[in-house]
Design a binder for these strands. Structure first.
Length: 990
DNA sequence: TGCCTCACG
DNA sequence: GACGTACGTGAGGCAT
């Protein structure tokens, strides 16, 4: 031991008290034991951090904890891979995933430790327990006292006269006596008990049939584990004797697993964890950033610091461009971190974008700067036409650990498209195209047919399948759902994956588009070849299988190249801007969920639709005759222009309005008004339009979407289409199937379940209003939902002083319109229009509403201010919706953006919730051994196809997943309610 | 291609 | 007092 060079008492001696905090375990315990506190300005979960800081403060101020610690370290688990995993791969293999609101608290607790000027220790390959055991051993040898702050029973083997444990949640000290209570043996025999009894939590096997009680009894009889195993044959109980003999080796393995290592080559010597007085100002800066007001004040008082004069820690405060906290939590993830390092090796420019010492923000900035520096050089792309070359690319991808992929097909419809080729990229300009099914155009000499020299499809697929499904290689795509579907139809399920389109969506929804070309131009300053340039456009367009291979290579390989480059930039931004949780929980997992829904499709009754089409045509013909007669001439009732001329020109009906472009307005609201005034023609037009819509958009169009192979209709869900986080559905749009009129519902009846099945529809009741009550913190509304009241009637009763019982329907109708108006960012004009009342009256309603529910006005004002200041709003789950025009000079544009922003928090939070439910649904159903299949999502409704005999069992599972979807990230005060029904068709299930 | 209209939440 | 309005979508048909 080296002699001290100063008179400081760093060197541990018998008067010292070494305190070791089990950081990771503390977070878990605190998370479950303490209320789910969040930082008020941005809802960052900080409950465990707060508890931790309070504890540290007590420790360093020696309040109620004696003797005062002279040495203190907070010890963390560093990596999953430990020597225990090497000897027993199942060790701790079934740890559940971390609750997501816990994840960001790990790095914050490290930050807190540093803010207190305390040692923060972690070491690769060793668990925190081993490091603590080593410190404890070293301190003990020097005669010091040791306290381990943890309640983990695995540490109890360390307890002796000099070493005690302290459970911070129960405020209880654990000595030899308490260990005996728990294990029935003295601390020195704890290892033997654990070796026999095993541990289901950590997956320590032990000996079957032996628990703690039995183990303690056996050890009392035989002394220690080795003696017991040696004399196992003497045991009377047959089963126990057999097990002890048969599983003796398993018990010895268990002993290796549970025995803590006391000789870890610690990188931070014990002497260096001496407690020093924290630097008050830095500590206050940290606590202020965390918004722990009480503790900030206490610390300020203790150090006599003027806390108002201290700025919160820039990196950690709410809204900071990059908090180290989230960056570390999100990591670039083990996956992406490897990507970063391998990226440098694979040829990315390294000017800081890969420097782990830089903050995530600096890294992201560096990557954006580096992105444009390697110009795209299409001449370097390779055309892969031999299996050997393809194998070489695959081999390299295994080394690199990530690869960009793009498939080329002959159709935009993923359910019909034939695979024509695929491209890969490993580094800038290091990309290739693998043509598989290009055909010649037929030049007169040869009839058209497959171009020779292409790798046979089956061989190529067999070669890339292991790569695309390898859990250690990240596959990167742009709109990967498409490629996933194409390859899934060939038996390949890509995993794991990243999607640059979704990265962009999480970061920039509402601010900029997420297609590859705009992303490339924005982030890489590069314009990729347009699809039309290789395939032609309009009448001359050909499908990709007819594009000459030389041209296809440049286009396709560039797509993979660009995708890879975009990933570098956007993934770094994701971390720097702390949106990893949104991406990982609400976006990425939905890719396969939606792909599977699309793949399943839904059955429609084509006969029924055909019959309806005929009925609608008859009705229209009848109406057309009447319309012609009334107008005195025959004209096209489908032409708004001709109709306007007839109504307001020829017939001179007063009350016409003009559209913004100066044409006569003939919208339903205008015609409805005229009809109420007694004009017959507008009524007929309205009826005709309804039939026209139902016929053309639904009855005639839907059957054309039936897939010839599956016999079902496969919509396409867009994940990155809306500003608010909602999905959209197209080709066909199955999110706008008629329901509001009797005629329309006939269309819905044509959506049916397969034989032996029923359709189950489960929808959230009033979810946006519930979220309003939650977000705007309106106790009366919240209470009404908790009590299960009719929310519109309750609103009416509050506003107009009318009792709920016997309320006139008109009163309730008005309150309902107001409630919806609020969700849409109410205006007097809009409400007046909706209710057909004067604008003054509508204004008075709104005023009254805000008087009765002041919290809602505050919510709207806050949202407006926040949006104006930041250019975006956030949902309850952190999804960002951008409104770049929110500060427009034009008041109507500004007001429009404000209303949209107010609505977005509600609509977006609801969208997040159903996304969470969808992500969990399949696993919940299969856990319950149910065969229900999710088919459609309609914003607040999920539609399933369920075998007849499983309906009763399935409905509660679906409802539970949906109702509990916000957990564990958020525990809403307002309950969510789900209504679910089963029927043979969608209309009756709804 | 833009505009209008209308289907849905 | 401007400005012209309820929020979010996609599809079909007309007119250009």
């Amino acid at each position: 031991m080296t002699a001290p060079t100063t008179d400081r008492t760093d060197i541990v001696d018998p008067n010292d008290h070494v305190v070791l905090i089990d950081g990771s375990a503390y977070i878990f315990r605190a998370y479950h034991a303490l209320p789910p506190l969040t930082r008020s300005s941005d809802k960052l979960p900080v409950g465990a951090v707060a508890g931790f800081c309070n504890m540290l403060w007590k420790l360093v101020r020696a309040q109620g904890f004696s003797p005062a610690p002279t040495h203190l370290a907070v010890v963390f688990d560093k990596s999953e891979q430990t020597f225990r995993k090497d000897i027993y791969p199942l060790y701790k293999a079934q740890r559940p995933d971390l609750p997501e609101d816990l994840i960001p608290q790990f790095p914050l607790i490290r930050e807190a430790t540093r803010a207190f000027d305390l040692a923060c220790v972690e070491q690769a390959g060793f668990e925190a327990d081993d490091i603590m055991a080593t410190y404890a051993e070293q301190a003990k040898k020097r005669g010091a006292r040791v306290t381990i702050i943890s309640s983990d029973k695995d540490l109890m083997q360390l307890v002796d006269d000099n070493v005690r444990m302290y459970d911070p949640m129960k405020d209880k000290t654990i000595g030899a006596e308490e260990v005996f209570e728990k294990f029935g043996v003295t601390p020195d025999k704890v290892i033997d008990v654990q070796s026999l009894a095993g541990d289901s939590v950590d997956n320590v096997p032990g000996v079957p049939g032996i628990g703690i009680k039995t183990a303690a009894q056996l050890l009392a009889d035989y002394g220690d584990l080795d003696t017991l195993l040696a004399r196992a044959g003497e045991i009377k109980q047959t089963k126990r004797r057999e097990n002890l003999i048969e599983f003796a080796d398993q018990a010895r393995l268990s002993r290796e697993l549970v025995t803590l290592k006391r000789d870890v080559p610690v990188e931070v010597p014990l002497d260096e964890i001496a407690v020093v007085e924290p630097e008050g100002k830095r500590l206050v800066a940290f606590l202020k950033a965390m918004e722990f007001t009480t503790l900030t004040r206490r610390v300020g008082e203790a150090y006599e610091i003027e806390i108002a004069a201290i700025e919160p820690d820039e990196r950690l405060k709410a809204g900071a461009p990059a908090s180290l906290a989230f960056a570390e939590a999100a990591g670039l993830g083990p996956q992406a971190e490897e990507g970063g390092e391998a990226g440098a090796a694979a040829g990315f420019t390294t000017g800081g974008g890969d420097d782990p010492r830089l903050s995530p923000t600096r890294r992201a900035v560096a990557r954006v700067e580096e992105a444009g520096k390697t110009p795209v050089d299409r001449s370097r792309y390779e055309t892969v036409t031999s299996l050997a070359r393809l194998q070489a690319w695959v081999g390299k991808a295994f080394e690199t650990g990530f690869i960009a992929i793009d498939t080329e097909t002959n159709s935009l419809d993923a359910m019909q498209a034939e695979l024509v080729g695929f491209s890969l990229a490993l580094a800038p300009n290091e990309a290739c195209y693998v043509p598989l099914q290009h055909v010649g155009a037929g030049d007169g000499l040869f009839s058209e047919g497959m171009i020779p020299g292409q790798i046979p499809l089956a061989e190529a697929l067999a070669t890339i399948k292991p790569l695309l499904e390898d859990p250690a290689v990240l596959k990167i795509g742009q709109n990967l759902k498409y490629d996933w579907l194409i390859l899934a139809r060939h038996g390949i399920e890509i995993a794991p994956y990243d999607d640059t389109m979704l990265l962009s969506y999480v970061l920039d929804a509402g601010a900029s588009p997420h297609g590859m070309d705009p992303l490339s131009m924005r982030w890489l300053n590069h314009t990729p070849i347009k699809y039309e340039e290789v395939a032609g456009k309009g009448k001359g367009a050909v499908t990709f299988d007819r594009v000459a291979i030389e041209k296809a290579v440049e286009y396709a390989a560039e797509d993979a190249d660009v995708t890879l480059r975009l990933w570098r930039v956007l993934k770094a931004r994701l971390v720097a801007e702390r949106k990893s949780a949104v991406y990982e929980t609400l976006e990425r997992p939905l890719v396969t969920v939606l792909a599977n829904m699309e793949r399943r499709g839904i059955l429609i009754d084509r006969q029924m639709l055909s019959r309806l089409s005929g009925d609608f045509a008859q009705g229209m013909a009848r109406l057309e005759a009447e319309i012609g007669e009334m107008a005195g001439e025959s004209f096209n009732p489908g032409s708004p222009k001709q109709l306007g001329d007839i109504l307001f020109g020829k017939m001179q009906i007063p009350g016409g309005r003009k559209t913004p472009t100066g044409a006569w307005s003939t919208g339903a609201d205008v015609l409805e008004e005229l009809a109420e005034q007694g004009h017959e023609l507008p009524r007929r037009i309205l009826d005709w339009r309804q039939l026209q819509k139902l016929k053309s958009t639904y009855a005639d169009a839907l059957p054309t979407y039936v897939n010839p192979h599956s016999g079902r209709v496969h919509t396409s869900f867009a994940l990155a289409a809306t500003t608010t986080g909602r999905l959209s559905s197209s080709e066909p749009n199955l999110q706008n199937i008629p329901v509001r009129t009797e005629e329309g519902r006939k269309i819905r009846k044509a959506f049916v379940a397969a034989p032996g099945h029923k359709l189950v529809s489960a929808d959230y009741s009033q979810i946006e209003l519930r979220l309003l009550a939650e977000i705007a913190d309106t106790p009366s509304l919240r209470q009404a939902f908790q009590d299960g009241l009719d929310i519109h009637a309750m609103t009416a009763s509050e506003m107009f002083g009318v009792p709920i019982a016997g309320m006139p329907s008109e009163v309730r109708r008005r309150a309902k319109a107001i409630n919806f108006g609020i969700i849409y960012g109410i205006s007097a004009f809009g409400l007046a229009n909706q209710l057909s009342i004067p604008r003054e009256e509508a204004g008075a309603y709104i005023k009254r509403y805000f008087e009765r529910f002041p919290g809602i006005r505050a919510y709207m004002d806050e949202t407006r201010t926040f949006a104006r200041e930041h250019g975006y709003v956030e949902t309850l789950f952190g999804r960002r919706c951008h409104y770049p025009d929110i500060a427009a000079k034009n008041p109507s544009i500004r007001a429009f953006n404000e209303r949209a922003a107010i609505n977005a928090r509600l609509q977006g939070s609801a969208a997040d919730i159903i996304r969470r439910a969808m992500v969990r649904m399949d696993a919940a159903l299969s856990r319950a051994k149910l065969d229900a299949r999710m088919l459609l999502q309609v914003h607040d409704e999920l539609i399933f196809e369920v075998p007849d005999d499983q309906i009763a069992a399935t409905i509660p599972v679906i409802a539970k997943v949906m109702e509990e979807a916000p957990l564990p990230a958020l525990a809403l005060k307002v309950p969510l309610k789900v209504d679910a029904r089963a029927a043979a068709n969608w209309d009756e299930a709804h």
